[in-house]
Amino acid sequence: MMPFLFAEFAMLDNKLPLYVYCVGSHEQKHLLRPNGYPAHQLFLSRRGKGIFRIQGSRDMVMTPGTMLILPAGVHHEYFPDQSEEAWELGFVAFSGSIASSILEHLGNHNPTLLKNNQFQEYWNKLESLWQLINLNSESGYWEASRKMYDFLLSVIEGQSDQEINQRIKPIGHSNAALQEAIKLIHDHYNERLHLSNLARAVGYSVQHFHRLFVSIYGMSPMLYIQQIRMRRSIQLFEENPSITVEKVAQQLGMETSYFIRIFKRTYGKTPKQFIKYE
């Protein structure tokens, strides 16, 4: 368990655009908040089962391995289910000038079932935040801000991957030619991939290939390639913190200036700003 910690130091002078408001985990009891909470919250259910009751919505059940994101100021209450096992709930609340804009990218505010390894990754990040806040030092709170940004970015990336996977395997739309196109993209994303070449490789006209790809995957082939490259760029930065922006662009088969522009459009920061937050 991680006893509740309130991050008072982080709010001094409004220095941080994103900061941890509080963090912890415990055996959750009944809690009613008719005026909501002053910060956005992210919950992780580790053991047992609980109920979230949010004004204007049906009751939502949180089981082990689920996550819930709750905006600030929303009337809600939550309480353990009547089962014998205690409900262990982890939580982190966050705020700051950029918190609301990040929240817009966090998607549907309903319990989300996570994969085992994904849940453990998020729980480890929660524990890391708790340790930093527990230091009660200015340097600890600056680092917690960086970790909080990383945490939220991981959640956004995880949701994006789930959406793309659903599009890649749409029900009733098995198409061998498009599956071959996807394989070509993943094998050659760092090369110059022209729409005409992809269409020709799978035996379609450019117009028909583009129309079919969009109808099944929900995005254009070029946007799909762009997303693959952006996710790969994050991996390259994380695998080798000393790698240069120019080297990453080169490995993705992109001009440096174009890579920087697309990276900022995708993640809201330039590559150098992202590295600094990491």
Rank of each mutant, 00 (worst) to 15 (best):
M2D: 11
A7F: 01
A7L: 02
M11Y: 10
L12W: 09
L12Q: 15
C22I: 02
L32C: 06
L32T: 09
L32Y: 13
L32A: 11
P34R: 11
P34W: 09
P34Y: 09
N35L: 15
H40V: 03
L44M: 09
G50R: 09
P64N: 06
G65L: 06
I69A: 08
L70C: 05
P71K: 08
A72I: 00
H75V: 07
H76Q: 04
P80E: 07
P80Y: 03
P80S: 05
Q82K: 13
A86I: 00
A86N: 08
W87P: 00
L89Y: 01
V92L: 13
S95H: 13
L106E: 11
L106A: 05
L106F: 10
T112A: 15
L114Y: 12
N124D: 14
N124S: 14
N124F: 14
N124P: 01
L126C: 07
W130R: 00
L135N: 03
E138R: 07
G140Y: 02
Y141L: 15
Y141F: 11
W142R: 13
E143Y: 10
E143N: 12
E143F: 09
S145V: 09
M148C: 15
Y149W: 13
L152Y: 03
L153F: 11
G158M: 03
Q159G: 15
D161M: 13
D161C: 05
R167V: 01
S174F: 11
E180C: 05
K183E: 05
H188R: 14
E191Q: 15
L193V: 13
G203R: 04
Y204E: 03
S205I: 01
F209V: 01
F209C: 00
Y217A: 01
G218R: 01
M222G: 02
Q227F: 06
R231G: 03
S233K: 05
T244A: 07
T244M: 05
V245C: 08
K247D: 10
Q250N: 12
Q251K: 14
L252E: 13
S257K: 14
S257P: 00
Y258G: 03
Y267S: 04
K272N: 04
